[in-house]
Nucleic acid binder design. Structure first.
Length: 468
RNA sequence: GCGGUAGUAGCAUAGCUGGCCUAAUGCGCCUCCCUGUCACGGAGGAGACCGUGGGUUCAAAUCCCAUCUACCGCGCCA
């Protein structure tokens, strides 16, 4: 018989159906046995009655988390037996037969509660069980809805999704890179992208005009409650934009996203308030201020744009470095100063961040599309011509070949969903998350590789200091 | 790299001012009973040597040292 999903059962009262599902729990009353059954669409109570002797016999052997195919008749419950707390509390499935598709060991963790009390090590090691809990099912399914929404939204706005390489080039600026050894050129390495920044700008050089990507990014830095070694950005870039256009477009996307997928949420202020970096620092001592008027309201979303960032800041050893992104353009009134390398501390970048409830969830800028201007940025930071050429020559070259003015933004999708789902930690919205030390406890990675693999790559391991 | 917290049966905890711990409780697990429960109920049972290594002591889950792991935060995160 064809499979019926559990959420459909309430429309099939009186019919005989077959469902495929997991055993949530069994309540054995001897002559009759109740079994709560669960599939991706919902839960339902099934009952093995004394008149189906075989059904009772099988029902008494099945255990939580077994996978079963149950054939039965959908019955309405007598009024006094209706459970108003359950979605399917008004019906039950009278079991005709049970086909056990797979048994299950006693689970090392209970996948039924919200898992908050279970040790993170256990949850991550048995992630496939942990993901069965309703909370994680909801988070991952809503994550899909969010991604679907932004893809549809941007598609309607004329953007196309373009995949950019994960095997790319290490640039020593910014975050530490994850590197991948090359087999064909021993001693050389790819790097995993910290973001698709350079590729997306080169796509603007390529005339794609409106690009976006749900992009995996990799940063080899220590983790936090809102940081993982690999994470997902909604990355976008467009040609010929004004800062205002990008802000408006993204604000509209976010408002519609919240209204569509999280109607219970309240956006504190629309249009989103805007602060200059200076105001934010003076008023809130933060460039990602928490503007919530009621911090106890779990459904309150206080978005806020922070604009007018200084382009450069001093490092500890007194050199200039970029505050956010070396590719950001100076604001028009400061371009002359940039080109003349003067008043450096006062140059403002066409840079905008977006904060949500005190967390940075996105940032972008109008880029420097003039090769001379980009070169000046690197010169101010003290880079030698050779280093500029080696690391960014491809960008400068592209900018010399008709690259349009362009700009964009990147959203931290995991963080955004973390707030939308009221989760305290980014791991709760990532299916297979890593620990604070960047380990995948389920796969047991990172792991050692064979001497053959190393030999092929021309790699010799200098004895690690820590040994297991 | 630094600081803090934690590590006791499958899970969550208690015990931790050393001896009454031959380690307790709840959930789960196993056996039996139960015709209406809804994370049913009842009776019985198995299961940890207390993260790991070392030390102090007549005696250590309990004190000390080291180490590993996880979590939170700082540094770091174009």
């Amino acid at each position: 018989m064809q499979r019926t999903y559990i959420k459909e059962l309430k429309n099939k009262v009186g019919e005989e159906v077959s469902i495929s599902c997991w055993v949530d729990i069994r309540r054995d009353h001897g002559k009759l046995i109740f079994v709560d059954l669960r599939d991706m669409s919902g839960k339902v109570q099934a009952v093995a009655l004394p008149n189906h002797k075989e059904a009772v016999a099988v029902a008494s052997t099945i255990r939580p988390e077994w996978v079963v195919e149950v054939t039965g008749k959908v019955n309405p419950r007598p009024e006094k037996l209706v459970n108003k707390n359950e979605e399917n509390g008004a019906i039950e499935l009278e079991i005709i037969s049970i086909n056990v598709l797979n048994e299950a060991l006693t689970p090392p963790l209970d996948p039924r509660g919200d898992g908050r009390e279970i040790d993170e090590e256990v949850r991550l090691k048995y992630r496939y069980l942990d993901l069965r809990r309703p909370r994680m099912q909801k988070n991952i399914r809503n994550r899909h809805k969010v991604l679907k929404f932004v893809r549809d939204f941007l598609d309607k706005e004329g953007f196309i999704e373009i995949e950019t390489p994960n095997l790319t080039k290490s640039t020593p600026e910014g975050s530490r890179d994850y590197i991948v050894p090359s087999r064909l050129e021993q001693g050389k390495f790819y790097a995993l992208p910290q973001s698709p920044q350079q590729y997306k700008q080169l796509l603007m050089a390529a005339g794609m005009e409106k690009y976006f990507q749900v992009a995996r990014c990799f940063r080899d830095e220590d983790t936090r409650g809102d940081r993982q070694p690999e994470f997902t950005q909604l990355d976008m870039e467009m040609s010929f934009p004004t800062q205002e256009e990008i802000i408006q477009l993204n604000e509209k996307m976010m408002i519609e996203l919240v209204k569509t997928i999280y109607p219970e949420k309240e956006i504190q202020q629309i249009p989103f308030p805007r602060l200059t970096y200076k105001e934010a620092m003076e008023k809130y001592n933060s460039d990602k201020p928490d503007l919530r008027k009621d911090k106890n309201n779990p459904n309150l979303l206080a978005f806020c744009w922070v604009v007018d960032f200084p382009m450069f800041e001093k490092t500890d050893d007194g050199k200039w470095t970029f505050t956010h992104n070396p590719f950001s353009a100076a604001q028009p009134q400061h371009i002359e100063d940039l080109m003349e390398k003067k008043n450096i501390e006062n140059i403002l970048a066409a840079q905008y961040d977006i904060a949500l409830n005190g967390c940075e969830i996105g940032g972008g800028s109008i880029r420097n599309h003039k090769p001379e201007a980009l070169k000046k940025v690197f010169q101010i930071m003290g880079y030698e011509d050779e280093r500029i050429e080696n690391n960014f020559g491809h960008m400068l070259k592209a900018f010399e070949m008709g690259t349009p003015p362009h700009g964009g933004i990147a959203w931290g999708i995991d963080r955004l969903i973390m707030f939308l789902e009221n989760e305290p930690n980014i791991r709760e919205v990532i299916a297979f998350a890593k620990t604070g030390e960047g380990k995948d406890l389920m796969m047991d990675s990172p792991s050692e590789v064979s001497t053959e693999q190393l030999k092929e790559l021309g790699i010799k391991i200098d004895k690690p200091e820590k040994k297991k």
